[in-house]
Design a protein around this nucleic acid. Structure first.
Lengths: 347, 347
DNA sequence: AACCATACCCAAAGCGCTTTGGAAGCCATT
DNA sequence: AATGGCTTCCAAAGCGCTTTGGGTATGGTT
C-alpha cells in the first residue's frame, strides 16, 4: 500500500493524506481521523527512501566505528553505547546506520556518507588526540557529535564525555589516602583522547602529593584482559613493585587481578586496584557490593544523551554546540585497602 | 553534484552517464572512461535514496538486536559479529542498519522494516527455541538469515551456527577422560536455542558415560561474570560439589574462576573448567597458550559468512537456503587437569 | 544503391513521497 | 450583492536516480 493507493481508497488527494498524516494544520479534524484510521487499517507505512528523497532528510544517523587494523578489535563499550543511542533514535523516528571501517580510509567514509546523503549526521567514536575528523566534518558540513573530546582543537563542536581527568585524580588520591606510594597506571592507548586525559589526572595527583612520576609504573595499550594481566605480572615482578594499580577498564582489571592472584597475593590486602567502570551490561562490577573500587559512569546513558544532543544540533543548526561532561561516581569495593608495610609481603 | 549536473558537464544525457557508471554495455569504452574520470574529478556519489527509489532495492541489511527488558543487556558477542558482517557489507556496497528493540514489540519492527522498504533483508540475532520470527519473516516475505538455529521449526531457512551440541559433547567427554564424574554446567538462558543445544550435548555425554543427570549441577542464566561467580560459589559450597565446570561463555568462566580462587582452590588442579570461547577481540583466552581449555569458534567469522549467505539469498531468491554449521576447535589450556582423588581437598 | 545490423546515444516516464501555488466553498461584513 | 477572509482541499512539480522505448549514425551486405 502506498500513498496513491491509500488516497484513492479514501477519495482524497495525496496532498491531503500526506498532510493529515504529518500533522499539518490545513486538514479538518474529521478527515484527519478518517485518514489515520485508514492508514492503520491498511497498515500503511511511507517508504523511507521516497520520503527522504522528497524532504532531503535521511532520518538516519551514521555511526562509524573505527577498527584498529593492527588489533582487529572493536571497542567493547560499543554495544552498550549504541543500545543507549538506539533508544533515542527509536523515540525520534531515526534509523541508525553503522559503518565499520579500518582507520586507513575513514575520510572516504565520512565524505561518502555526506555525498550520498545517506545520513543527517554522525556520531564520532573513539576520538584521538588532535583528531582530524572534527576538522573534516566541519569542513564538509556534516553535523556530528563526539563521544569524548579532542584535545588540541580550536573548533567548537558538540560532545559528551565523562570527566576523565577528575575521575583519575580522585582514584589516585584515594589510593594515596590509603597510604600507597607506588601506584601503577594500566591505561588505554594514549593516542586516544580519553586515555590521555586519564593519565593527566593520574599525574596531577602524583604531583599534588609530591611523588615523582615514574614511567616504569605506567602502561599504555589496548584494554584487554591479557594485556592487563601481562602488564601487572611484569610490574609485580619488580624489586620494588607497585602496591596499587589504576586500570582504565574493568576488563584490564580482571587481568590485573589474575596476575595478583597468580603471585599468591590477595587483592585488597597486598595489592589494591581501582578501575574505571563503564557499567557494561554483561560485565558488571559485582552485584550489590562492588568487587572493584571504581570510578564509574554508564556508557549506555552516554549513548542516549549524546544521540539527543546530535538530533538537537541537526534540528537547530544555528544553536551553539552542546558540551556535556558527566562526573563519575566513585564506589568503594573489595579491591582496595591500606598499603601494606614495606616488609609485609617481601617484595 | 548530481547526475543531471554531471551529465551537463559532459555534454551527455543522464541515461548514458548512468549506464556508463553502472557498467551497462550500451556505452563505448571511450565515453565510459570519460564519464568515470569526470565522476571521480567532481566527486560524484549517487544519492542512496534516489537510487533506492528508482531500483526498488535498499542496498541495506537490517540487524535487529533483541534486548531483554528484564536484564537491559545486549549480547557481548554482538560487537564482534557485526564487525564481521560489516566487512561483507562494505565489500558489496551494502549499508548496515541497526534496530535495538525490546522483545515486546519485535514483530512491529520487522513489519515496519518491510513496509517502509528500508532494508533488503535482515539478520536474526539470538534465536530462541521455537522462535516465532522465522514464521513471521517467511510470511511477510522478508529475506533473512539466522545467527544460530531454531529447534522445532518446519520451515526451511538460511542460517549459520556453530555445532553447539558436538562442542559440548566434546567438552564433557574430555572431562570424563580426565576422570571427572561430577561436572557442572553453567549455561546461558535455555530459552535460547544455542543454550538448549549445549545442554543436550552435555547430557548426551553424561548418558554415554552412564552418569545420571543431576539438575543440581546445572545452571541456566544470563552469561555474566557475576552470575558465573555466584553459580560456582554456590555449587562449590555443596558437600559433594562438582570437580569440573563447563561454561557457555568466557565471561561466565571468569566468574567461575573467581569463585574457585576465592575458596582457596586452584583452577586446573582442584577444579577444572572448560568454556566455550567466541574469540571476542577484547576478551581473548590468553595469549599464545590458552588460559581456559575451550571449544572455540570465531563469532566474527560467523558474521562475515552469514552476511554473505544473506546477500546470496537476496540475489538468488530461488536458490535453496544455505545452511552452515561450523565445527568448534578444541583447545587445551591451563584450566583443566586430572580429577582430584576424593579426599584430596576435603570437600 | 538500397538495406540491415550494430553501436551509441537520448527523451521521457516512473519510483513514492512532499510541497507550492492555487481553487472552491462558506460565512461574515460592508 | 459584492467583497474579503477562512477553511479545506487538490493538481502538478519536484527530489535524483534507473530504465523503457526509441532515434541516428556507421559500416558491412546484397
Amino acid at each position: 500500500m502506498n500513498l496513491k493507493q491509500l488516497s484513492e481508497q479514501l477519495g482524497l488527494s495525496q496532498t491531503t493524506v500526506s498532510r493529515a498524516l504529518n500533522g499539518y494544520p490545513e486538514v479538518s479534524a474529521a478527515t484527519r481521523h478518517r485518514v489515520e484510521a485508514a492508514a492503520k487499517e491498511f497498515n500503511y507505512h511511507p517508504s523511507t527512501r521516497a520520503k527522504g528523497l522528497a524532504t532531503g532528510r535521511a532520518l538516519a544517523i551514521g555511526h562509524v566505528i573505527p577498527m584498529s587494523t593492527k588489533h582487529e578489535m572493536v571497542n567493547p563499550v560499543f554495544g552498550d553505547f549504541i543500545a543507549g543511542a538506539g533508544e533515542t533514535y527509536a523515540r525520534n523516528g531515526y534509523e541508525m546506520i553503522l559503518s565499520i571501517v579500518d582507520d586507513s580510509n575513514e575520510d572516504q567514509i565520512y565524505r561518502s556518507l555526506k555525498l550520498r546523503r545517506a545520513v543527517d549526521g554522525v556520531i564520532v567514536h573513539g576520538p584521538r588526540i588532535d583528531d582530524p575528523r572534527i576538522a573534516l566534518l566541519s569542513e564538509i558540513g556534516m553535523p556530528f557529535a563526539v563521544h569524548g573530546q579532542v584535545t588540541h582543537n580550536a573548533l567548537p563542536y558538540t560532545f559528551l564525555d565523562v570527566d576523565n581527568h577528575d575521575a583519575f585524580v580522585q582514584a589516585t588520591d584515594y589510593l594515596f589516602d590509603l597510604g600507597h606510594q607506588r601506584i601503577a597506571l594500566i591505561n588505554g592507548l594514549e593516542t586516544m583522547d580519553f586515555a590521555y586525559r586519564r593519565r593527566s589526572g593520574y599525574e596531577a595527583s602524583l604531583r599534588a602529593h609530591g611523588v615523582a612520576i615514574d614511567p616504569a609504573l605506567m602502561r599504555s595499550s589496548e584494554m584487554t584482559e591479557v594485556i592487563g594481566y601481562e602488564s601487572a605480572r611484569d610490574l609485580l615482578a619488580f624489586n620494588n613493585g607497585p602496591t596499587a594499580f589504576i586500570c582504565a577498564s574493568l576488563i584490564s582489571a580482571l587481568g590485573v587481578r589474575r596476575a595478583i592472584e597468580e603471585r599468591g597475593l590477595v587483592m585488597g590486602q597486598d595489592v589494591s586496584v581501582v578501575t574505571h567502570d563503564d557499567m557494561l551490561s554483561y560485565l558488571q562490577n559485582g552485584g550489590e557490593t562492588p568487587i572493584f573500587t571504581a570510578t564509574r559512569s554508564s556508557v549506555r546513558t552516554a549513548g542516549r544523551q549524546l544521540a539527543e544532543s546530535l538530533l538537537h544540533a541537526i534540528e537547530h543548526p544555528n544553536n551553539p554546540p552542546q558540551k556535556t561532561i558527566l562526573k563519575c561516581e566513585f564506589v568503594v569495593g573489595h579491591s582496595t585497602g591500606p598499603a601494606p608495610r614495606k616488609d609485609e609481603h617481601g617484595l
